[in-house]
Computed example of a mutant assay.
Amino acid sequence: MGSQYLVITVLSNWLVILLISLWLCSKVRLDNFFKYIVLAIFTLHLFVLHQYVLYFNIDWYFTSTYNGEHQMTANLSLVPFHTIIKAFTTPVFVPVYFVQIIGNLLLLTPFAFSLRYLSIANSNFKAVLAMFFTSLGIEVTQLFQTYLSSGYEHFQGRATDIDDLMLNTVGAVIGVLIYKIFMKGFHSRKASITSYT
């Protein structure tokens, strides 16, 4: 029975992310080889992101003991900069804090770059806005998952932190800036080659 739930877990998770990937790919304009590479990395990153931040373990709910004591506030932090300040003011150096900060800062950076470079988003603002709502969706989903799993014994919920939303959004801005620098360099190189020939 457990193996059946495991199959359902794997299929449901990957089917959702596959459909999202196909929908995004349908909006891409591929007119050079480098865009194919970016699209491949973008799609791979989408699957990896889902695996680490949104994977919904259906199998666990059917094999764990339910106690009915759900907690909405478990692992919830709505105070801006609380986690960031804590990382820099803790007397003892805790590497995991900085790994989380850097990880959240860079989490959506490739996505923002890809949205602009692959012409999925037709403006920098829309790319950043899309990443903001993506991050918000991740945090709300993690809150929902934590609430569900808190009703079971030995639950390990995901953290829902407003600082994650802020860092993800700043990371999206970084991705857009990288895109602008990249395109400026690309056009400069193209202009120099044209003038040379």
Rank of each mutant, 00 (worst) to 15 (best):
T134L: 12
A130T: 11
T63C: 08
L24A: 00
Y152E: 06
A121Q: 04
V128F: 01
G137A: 11
Y61F: 08
D31Y: 03
I174R: 13
Y97F: 10
C25A: 10
V173H: 15
G151I: 05
Q100H: 11
I85E: 12
Q71V: 01
F47K: 04
F93Y: 15
Y5P: 14
S135F: 03
L15S: 10
A191C: 02
V176N: 04
L136R: 13
L143M: 02
L136H: 15
A159C: 12
D161H: 05
V94H: 06
S135N: 00
S64M: 12
Y5L: 15
R158D: 05
I8M: 12
P91D: 07
L107C: 06
I120H: 02
P110S: 05
F113G: 06
V53F: 15
V99W: 10
L15F: 11
N32K: 11
F182R: 00
V173F: 15
I178P: 02
T9P: 00
L106I: 06
W23V: 12
N75G: 08
V140W: 08
S150Y: 08
T43S: 11
S188D: 14
M72Y: 15
L30S: 12
I138A: 04
H187F: 11
L107F: 10
L118R: 10
D161S: 02
R189N: 09
M183L: 08
P91F: 01
A172R: 00
N122K: 00
L106N: 05
M166T: 13
